[in-house]
């Protein structure tokens, strides 16, 4: 073999290994940089006092993250609870009941909606959802709400993740062999029984993976939530109270508080918390998926 060809081959493959490894390095670097930057706040306060307190008074040197963490979790949980049942039901209808013409009509719409930027969903939320909650919905339950609330944040996020879920569910259900459905139908199962006991069951690992993806997306979503959730650092009490999720905290304050080194460091800790939770979440779900796949086979 000609030497030049071998040299070309070697350089190319080495370079490719290098880019892949640099992506590995990127993740470690992000973690390390964020950790180094949060060091200042961690050295002044115990981790427990940071995570366990909900008092956020940066000017007085009090940095309690609990309200933000609780706000993030509340808004994410609400979004998934609101989004999963209709997304799953609609996807089952599209794959098991609708004919292929209707399916091919829906698919591009879902695709398009999955691509619409968060900020646009935020605009819609501000224009329609916030007034709806403050004027119509909230008066039925509480004395007063501005409409900028946990509920608004949860609904906007739910609407954002529904197209994402439906796109993936659609692919998932389409990949399940027809034989399997027919085996169930041939035993006298109705279409719903077949969908629930065979299709959904077979697709369970994929459904879990999709939900994990939707949770990560909702968890880290910044702009859309920030525009409608009110951004008040209280523990989430009712659906109509404002909340303040972690990403919104970073987005609202970063860059403007550089004069207070503790404050900047606290915001970096917020980013680190997001980073660590996402990684932990991925690792755990990976393990669950692995076991689920083996069990269903």
């Amino acid at each position: 073999m000609k030497l030049s060809r071998r040299i070309k081959d070697l350089t190319a493959t080495r370079l490719m290994m290098l880019t892949t490894m640099s992506a590995f390095a990127l993740m470690i670097i992000i973690g390390v940089v964020l950790a180094v930057k949060s060091e200042q706040i961690l050295s002044g306060h115990s981790l427990w006092s940071l995570l366990g307190s909900s008092v956020w008074k940066p000017m007085k040197g009090e940095f309690g993250f609990l309200a933000f963490i609780a706000g993030t979790l509340a808004v994410t949980a609400l979004a998934i609870v609101l989004a999963l049942p209709p997304a799953l039901m609609a996807s089952i209808w599209l794959s098991e009941y609708a004919n292929s013409r209707i399916r091919s009509l829906f698919a591009p719409v879902i695709d398009l909606l999955a691509g619409i930027p968060p900020v646009v969903y935020g605009v819609w939320g501000t224009l329609t959802l916030v007034p709806l909650i403050s004027e119509t919905l909230a008066p039925c339950f509480v004395d007063f709400s501005t409409g900028y609330s946990l509920l608004a944040g949860g609904i906007v996020l739910a609407i954002m993740v529904i197209p994402l879920m439906m796109g993936l569910f659609g692919e998932l259900f389409a990949s399940i062999p027809r034989d399997l459905r027919e085996a169930s139908l041939a035993l006298g199962a109705t279409r719903w029984e077949t969908a629930r006991r065979v299709v959904v069951r077979k697709a369970l690992p994929g459904i879990v993976a999709t939900v994990v993806l939707a949770i990560s997306r909702a968890f880290g979503e910044t702009i859309a939530v920030m525009m409608v959730c009110g951004n008040v650092a209280d523990m989430p009490g009712s659906l109509f109270n404002p909340v303040y999720p972690l990403p919104a905290l970073i987005a609202n304050n970063y860059g403007e508080m550089m004069s207070l080194p503790d404050y900047e460091s606290a915001l970096m800790l917020a980013a680190l918390i997001l980073f660590v939770i996402i990684i932990a979440f991925n690792v755990i779900s990976h393990a669950i998926l692995h076991r689920l796949k083996q069990r269903i086979a």
Binding site: D179, V198, R201
Partner: peptide, 20 residues
């Protein structure tokens, strides 16, 4: 149709074990 199909067992070309 479901009750009708119950009266006729189906054996497919390849075994179709349900995911359970």
């Amino acid at each position: 149709v479901a009750a009708l199909r119950r009266r006729m067992g189906l054996l497919a070309q390849r075994p179709t074990v349900l995911p359970m």
